[in-house]
Simulated scan of single mutants.
Amino acid sequence: MNTDELLTRESFIELGARERARALLDAGTMRELIGPFDRLASPWLAAQGVVTQADDGVVVACGRIDGQSAVVLAIEGAYQGGSMGEVGGAKIAGALELAAEDNRRGIPTCAVILFETGGVRLQEANLGLAAIAEIHAAIADLRRYQPVVGITAGTVGCFGGMSIAAGLCSYLVVTREARLGLNGPQVIEQEAGIEEYDARDRPFIWSMTGGEQRYASRLVDAYLEDDVEAMRTSVREFMRQGVPAQHRSDREADFLACLARVDATEQARPEAVRAIYQEGL
């Protein structure tokens, strides 16, 4: 990439959730549902001394993508680490359910989910877990009709139960700055020890769960520069491809075969992980 291209590139990562959603939708078509002026905040955080946010850190934006009806669900990673609670989770699940219902009524409606989340909100525990389970079910329902595109741009990443939601998407898009994994670095270090996973070793962490590694391991479908136009173009390309012949989450036999080739007696290495997945997927 030359200097002129760098100067004209607009960062997607630096945008807030609302601006990201607006950037992906066709110009002038965005309409927000249950926005901040509706004051639908978590009823549980204030009781625990946590400052609430009027939209609970989730933006639900309706509009059009490439002329087709679409909903963009953007998680604000800057609020509570993008964690999922009762309200934010219900907003995402409800929007996906309405999109599926639109399709059943003959209105083709696709969805994009912007994953910047550490997973369940610890302050809401089981309520957050239940909300994430509803999101999983809603993605599985909608993807039968229209593509559900997941995006993890950075820098929060996508972890916990929401990484399962990402795995259920029809297509996944990442950047170099993104991270994607079931458990976060601190959790792995806490449970397995620093010898297994040093949460302070950022190059190692990105080498295992970063966007480049996930793309090389064939666990995501597109690896992009941090650029709004590139992200917009990629989303439209996947929407035009339609529902994939087989979703990644339906290939459990392939993934189990990959896991069977892992030597758990040795420290995992990025190049070994890539080789295993590239051979089996």
Rank of each mutant, 00 (worst) to 15 (best):
G35N: 14
R269K: 14
D201G: 01
E32R: 12
D227W: 01
E195T: 03
Y145I: 04
G106E: 03
D201P: 00
C110N: 10
G184M: 01
L127M: 14
T233I: 06
A165M: 09
V220M: 01
P36Y: 11
T265F: 01
V220F: 06
P43I: 03
R31F: 07
R248W: 13
A90L: 11
D66A: 15
A216L: 15
R143N: 05
A275K: 13
E86S: 13
M1D: 10
V262G: 06
G119E: 06
I13V: 13
S11Y: 02
A100P: 03
C110I: 05
T52Q: 13
P147K: 11
L259W: 06
R218H: 12
E76F: 02
A272K: 12
V120D: 09
M231Y: 04
I92T: 09
D254G: 00
E189C: 09
C158A: 10
A78L: 14
E191F: 07
Q278S: 06
E279A: 15
F115I: 04
A153E: 06
D254R: 12
R20C: 02
R214K: 12
Q123L: 15
I65F: 12
I13K: 07
D221R: 01
G211W: 04
A93S: 15
E266Y: 01
A272V: 10
E177C: 00
P270E: 03
G89C: 15
V72L: 08
R18M: 10
I34P: 00
I65K: 08
G181I: 00
V112T: 02
Y79P: 05
E134H: 15
I75L: 08
M231A: 03
E195K: 02
V173N: 01
G89F: 07
F159Y: 15
R200Q: 11
E279R: 15
R202Y: 04
G193N: 05
R236V: 01
G280Q: 10
I276P: 07
V173G: 03
G16A: 00
I13H: 02
L24I: 14
G35P: 01
Q146T: 09
V262H: 08
R22T: 13
A275E: 15
S11G: 04
V59Q: 08
C158D: 04
Y223L: 05
I113M: 08
W206Y: 13
F115P: 03
G49F: 13
G28Y: 09
A264C: 05
E116T: 06
Y223C: 01
S234P: 09
P203C: 04
G167Q: 07
A99C: 09
V173S: 05
G106A: 00
A61W: 05
I92A: 12
D141W: 06
Y223V: 03
L114H: 08
A260V: 07
A78H: 10
N126K: 07
R31N: 07
E134M: 14
I132N: 11
Q186H: 12
T209E: 06
R31A: 12
V71I: 11
G154E: 06
A137N: 14
R39G: 00
R232M: 03
E252H: 03
S163A: 15
D4R: 12
D26R: 02
T233P: 00
A100W: 04
A133G: 08
M231H: 10
Y145K: 07
I276N: 02
R9T: 10
I92P: 09
N103E: 08
I13E: 05
S11K: 03
Y171N: 02
